[in-house]
Design a protein around this nucleic acid. Structure first.
Length: 114
RNA sequence: UCAGAUUAUCGGCUGAUCGCCCCGACGCUUUGCGCGUCGGAGAGGAAAGUCCGGGCAGCUCAGGGAGAGACAGUUGCUAACGGCAACCGGGGGUAACCCUAGGGAAAGUGCCACAGAAACAAUACCGCUCGUAAGAGUAAGGGUGAAACGAGUGGGGUAAAAGCCCACAGUUCCCAGUGGUGACGCUGGGAAGAGGUAAACCCUGUCUGCUGCAAGGAGACAUAUUUUCACUAAGGUUCCCGCCGAAAGUAUGUCACAAGAUCCGCUCGAUUAUGUCGGCAACGGCAAAACUAGAUAGAUGAUUAGCUAAAACAGAACCCGGCUUACGGAUAAUCUGGCAUA
RNA sequence: GGGCAAUUAGCUCAUUUGGCUAGAGCGCCACAUUGACGUUGUGGAGGUGAUAGGUUCGAAUCCUAUAUUGCCCA
């Protein structure tokens, strides 16, 4: 899980991000991001729809694994960004950790965040 | 040893590294509960479905009647229940044991397709008997159907028949005795012969006001005054009665004030485990002990090593008591039947 | 979190108070018509009435549980 300072609070900034953000699309999830000059640190949110998997346990597992993968790249993120990762397949829950970390790292690189 | 029945418990564990939420103490501090260190605590038996019952909160008092809905053997348990326990009646199993929406059809209404003469209201298709026939008597037998005035067998009886009469067996109801708190059981006597369906309407008895933490609160009280609507109105999410005018604003006084992406409600409770006493049991009394999640885009994770196999169903959102459904397996206890041996 | 509906043929919908073999339109298949296709006509196939259990002589219909889908309350 990720610290409270790196989470979103409220709907306003998320609405701004969905409207103005740029997207990098992968196989299992897509990444949306925008630079935020008003903050010192980055923020990240993971969105897992109920359509991905019915079970709350599986959805929680996906969310935690993705947060953990982002946290491992934390020291490389120097500029403050707002990031939303939208998952659209439940294979994330069963994927190997090396593959998941690699996919996250690659998409963050594509977005020029790290 | 094989095949079963019932009940209870557990629901992955341990080590290493890196992290998350809350609480407490200390230190620093730009006063933002911000940062650091140490310590404590951190999802379930179903947290699920939302099928019932309650607490709590608001709607004016939470009142009366009607309507609507739910439930239905008896006795108990419980805060309450549609839940649970024990027992009674009925059904299944060799047995241990299991299942059971189990009030009322002579209060009334409706329905019972097709077939069949006829579906509860009358009657008679083939028959049987009497009679030349017309017709009369009859319901034993045949046939139809899920079901046929619905009491079987034997005997008497008759023109032919029939509870029309008798004996035995059986059903329902009533009375008496007896056992039980009771449902009901047993024994004796009397009466009756009038299908089914109430998970059809309905009747009887019992219970229920409505909305739900996205409830609700973050100013309260008093006085004066203005405006609007109304006094047959409005004010409860079915209607009527009772009850009470209602809404908005201004000013003054007293107390209070941390500010709408926040805070409270928010977790100490019909709580949990232990002992003991009462009870067949559900459960209750008493004693001493413990504090055991409280998030708010939403905290329990990731990687790795081992056990014995990278193990099922599955994630708190105001809180409890049940029910129902999902579930890989492991363990324990009691009991039943078969076979073998002693 | 709380409340409420629906599920019938490949698709869209009927079937009123339980009754014989569940119908309609579009679609599909075959035949006829045409030189061929379309149109048109005739005929046919296709249903465990979402799943399971119960009440009843009999259930798509009544009752209970489960699954799926959709809607409302911020």
């Amino acid at each position: 899980m990720i610290s409270r300072t790196h989470r979103f609070h409220g709907y306003g900034s998320l609405r701004f991000l969905y409207k103005n953000g740029q997207a990098v699309r992968g196989q299992l999830f897509s990444l949306k991001y925008v630079q935020n000059p008003r903050r010192q640190t980055y923020r990240v949110a993971v969105v897992v729809s109920k359509k991905v998997n019915k079970s709350a346990v599986v959805r929680n597992r996906i969310r935690r694994r993705v947060y953990e993968a982002v946290r491992s790249q934390e020291c490389k993120i120097t500029t403050p960004y707002d990031i939303v990762i939208t998952v659209f397949h439940d294979q994330v829950a069963g994927q190997s950790s090396v593959g998941l970390h690699g996919a996250i790292q690659e998409q963050l690189k594509q977005a020029n965040i790290i």
